[in-house]
Design a protein around this nucleic acid. Structure first.
Lengths: 212, 212
DNA sequence: ATATCCTTGTTAATATTATCACAACCCCTG
DNA sequence: CAGGGGTTGTGATAATATTAACAAGGATAT
């Protein structure tokens, strides 16, 4: 990265999109790509693509474009991929199981080591090869088994205490699926997936198609 | 809405957040709320809250603030809630089932009428009281049973054809969980939930906590 | 009634984000 | 190895989005 420049969140949210496009290109054995071609593929302007990438360094070559393999490697490095992230999921209901299944099939870079739940009847069972433990044991488990990411898929009512337990256990980041904005110490990143909010936005645009 | 003013997507994405806060306030029997108090609750500046709401009309009163019940009703009206939206889910795997379960427990405003899948062994079964049909019958089903929203929870490879079938069947909007940007006719709104992108952004901030 | 206190709606200022435009300069062809 | 074509990196400009500031006017207390 150039200096200690603060990168805008808008740029960061686009990086995974670039990565997906580059993976597709690599799979189709494309060796090089220009910002203009990338623009046609993913819809951002060529100018924006060049400016985004330039926040992190000049990965392209004039008259040539970008080397697909190299650029993909650079973006993976920027994001911090290339090592394994250990995860736990708090909430072993349908959503927790779906996320567990998604992660295990998605990439070896992410590994769910345990699920947690309050429900007696779930504790001790396995889902997708992952053991469900009692949520009371969460913090203790995390201290024994250092974990990078905590996923919250419990109800709104239980989300804050799940978050507190994850923080107490020393996770580095939180992925929250509960429809609530959780309190946490500064410096702990959190990504929210608010399904209901998302659905409501969709409904707005269904009713105002002229605004799309 | 004031005139035919085009409302920025940034504003639209905040409306569901306001709605959530107002629901909580209503549940705790709070009658009135000022933009300053709302700001403390949800983190947006008071100025932004007032400006957002004013795009749609003056719902507040000087020296008093906003009436919780009324403001909630206004935002529901703006979003287009208050009627039932019929939905189908294409992809009856874990994610599809999780979304189905989420929706049925979330609100009566949304109703999943059918799941669809390619897998022979799933077709004819019921999940959460909803029948799984063959994806080949999707468009025909939609023509018989007018549907507002199509949810895509199939693999990346099958997502575009699912999208095409939904559009051919006349859905008004699409909620896409596949990690791909789908082609569709202009005027069909689509909300994307790209879990992998989201996870990658989280990983970036885990590795650059100073940038939060 | 009246005066004070609040809080909105709204305009202006600032900050952030996206686009444009082009010089620099590398690839590629012959 | 020279010239034409193509593409980047980047500073300037435009567009959006957010925050600040305050006049207008209702709520509340007395």
């Amino acid at each position: 990265m150039k200096q200690n420049e603060k990168i805008s969140p808008a740029v960061i949210r686009r990086l995974p999109r670039y990565l997906r496009a580059l993976e597709d290109l690599e799979n189709s054995n494309t060796e090089r790509i220009s910002s203009g071609e990338l623009s046609a593929l993913i819809g951002y302007t060529a100018s924006q693509i060049r400016q985004d990438l330039n926040h992190f360094g000049g990965f392209g070559q004039q008259g040539y474009g970008y080397n697909v393999k190299d650029l993909k490697a650079e973006i993976e490095k920027i994001l911090g991929l290339g090592r394994q992230y250990k995860m736990v999921i708090v909430g072993a209901g349908r959503l927790g199981q779906a996320i567990n299944s998604f992660i295990s099939s998605y990439s070896d870079d992410f590994c769910v080591t345990s699920l947690f739940d309050v429900k007696e009847e779930l504790i001790g069972k396995e889902k997708h090869g992952v053991l469900i433990r009692a949520v009371d044991d969460l913090t203790a488990y995390l201290k024994e088994n250092p974990t990078d990411i905590g996923v919250i898929t419990v109800t709104k009512e239980n989300a804050q205490s799940a978050c507190d337990a994850l923080v107490a256990g020393g996770v580095s980041g939180i992925w929250n699926f509960a429809p609530i904005d959780l309190e946490r110490p500064a410096g702990i990143p959190m990504e929210n997936v608010h399904l209901s909010d998302n659905l409501h936005s969709l409904v707005y645009y269904i009713n105002h198609p002229e605004q799309i």
